[in-house]
Design a protein around this nucleic acid. Structure first.
Lengths: 199, 199, 199, 199
DNA sequence: CATGAATGAGGTTTCATTCAT
DNA sequence: GATGAATGAAACCTCATTCAT
């Protein structure tokens, strides 16, 4: 019986959620601070009572998402499952994360590549590296254990998995016909077993 | 009447290639006309001798790419292969297109969603629709023909394929270790047969 | 009967002292109300319980300083000394004033010129005029009395004295190696007798 | 027949002169970019074709002045005069500099203290140090040579001279009744010999 | 007395675009 | 074909000030 930790969100959190939504829809650059303020029912200047800059909103949105994501990934990795189960759990957690933080994930997908050059967002490159290590590790172990095909190009498979999962944030809508878990199951069946029928 | 077909590229074409490169790297909004001009070794104002506007550069880049792409897709569809072969051919052509027009593809991937609302770029929504119809048609026929698994969620598989292929434009570099055809083969083996070993 | 004459300073006075310090350091314009409030350990809005506006703080600081200064100058002038003694007394009182109200003096020196146009600060121009009259009077009397050199350009000497004294507020720090009186003595010896040795 | 080296000033130089004028009159902070542009007969944004920022205008004005000043001071020092002549020459050059670069000097006087903390303006602190060394050197040599009084407090005299000279920029107007050289002569007679008659 | 939150005016800066030369 | 200079709209941000609590 999980007691909801969610107390009433602070004004900051509300505003960040609004900002994330708009950023995700139009892109960071194309989003004006005025637009966010409009959406929040205040004047553009008023946002600066809560945040230092437009960039710091972006920063907070991305770190909030990544911190949460890694906490969950770490829990999965700590469980010590076999490769197939680990892939399953990681993909499932990823789709759950899209469910929880859709705008942040879409934003991350859209902007992280060119933000990574900015010192303030160096953690994006760090995260990307951990990501790569994590997936390559799981995939290689899977190949070694014969959980995955021996001829698998793990680097390519890593990119394939990474992209496939996160791009879903661009079309996924919480409360749609499929739950995050269902989408994860479908994706996994394609990735693990392919779309061609097994004999 | 010197219509240059594939001989030396015109100055326009050179400039468009430059613009596409910069757009792809930084995003359309974040790219300044001055930056494109710098890269082309001229002043910002001088670009307006060649193009009406920044938007018209974007337009020309995207139509150039889509016209080419559809010509090739249409050729594949006209060949009348079976579903598995058609998927194979379409995916292969897609990766070849990334090879030929990488910046344009990356740009398309990044910007098409929110450009679609702009009347000038209505053709993006049209293209997207044709895309969807094409893929859904192939996939459904494949399920009917038992070329693909009976339990395949074709809408989800469509998104999966679409995203998976195009996102590759964000990391693919022509002249890397894998040719476009090799990457296509690897992707197809994952999509068609999965990463788990077949019994 | 709590009229605080010179006992514990009221909160207003404390806040004005803080404001004067910050104004003097960064200039009036460059000083934000928030900065003053920070320094005073409160929020910007809270200052408005004590003062009408940022400008009224400036006003109070400047009038406080000028009222005090003129009371002292008037006492000197009323004493009816000769020119040399009067100059000595005025310069000494000026340095004492710097000692007592350093931030206010620095502020006055820095801002009075362009504040003088503002009707609210018309008293600055008045004060400047009285200043000029006072000094010119003393210097001219001194020349007439042969207390000062016959060839003295009194207008130039006036500016020289005025500037020389007040600019000291920008580097003087109370509690330094020299007392106000000592600095006054040194200044006077330079002004009255020059830095070259007297035969 | 000194051939005027002054070719027609570039647009940049014209704009800098305008900016310096306005900065000097109202202070750097209180001066809006729009005000400068108005004075120059253009729109605020147009200034950014010529300069990176308001700060870079300030920077260029100050470096232009200081470079010129030091070139002249260095020439004086290189001449190897005795202390009294050196002081005379330095003060005279200073007043000439006020004549040439009045707004820049006024600006320097008004803003250098609090700009010095800004890394971009570190050269202000450097210049101030060289200034101090130069003056202290001359004064000490003068005391040793008996050109100046034995009891002279050289540190105090340095400040006295420094301030006295530069503050004149706040009231000096080129083309007034006194030439720069005349003012210098008067100042020097006060500083060197005092305002009291010599016996 | 003080806080937290907001306003609104105005500031600096960016940038696509124009145009005479 | 290209340059140098400018426009003008709109962006981000600052800050004195207000006010309910």
């Amino acid at each position: 019986m999980p007691t909801s930790k969610k107390t009433t969100p602070t004004r900051r959190e509300e505003l960040l959620a609004t900002a994330a939504e708009v950023f995700a829809e139009h892109g960071y650059r194309a989003t004006t601070v005025r637009r966010i303020a409009d959406e929040a029912g205040m004047l553009a200047g008023s946002l600066y009572y809560h945040f230092d800059s437009k960039e710091s909103m972006l920063d907070e949105i991305l770190t909030g998402f990544l911190d949460d994501l890694w906490a969950r990934y770490d829990a999965v990795l700590a469980a010590g499952h076999g490769p197939r189960e680990t892939v399953t759990a990681l993909v499932t957690e990823s789709f759950r994360e899209i469910d929880r933080h859709r705008p942040a994930v879409a934003l991350y997908q859209r902007e992280s590549a060119h933000l990574a050059g900015n010192p303030r967002f160096a953690y994006l490159a760090d995260s990307r590296r951990r990501f790569e290590e994590m997936w390559l590790g799981v995939l290689r172990r899977g190949v070694a254990d014969r959980a995955f095909r021996a001829d698998l190009d793990t680097r390519l498979a890593y990119r394939f998995l990474r992209d496939t999962v996160w791009v879903a944030a661009s079309w996924y809508r919480p409360g749609g016909t499929h739950s995050a878990e269902e989408i994860a199951r479908q994706y996994l069946s394609m990735v693990l077993d392919g779309i061609a029928p097994r004999p």
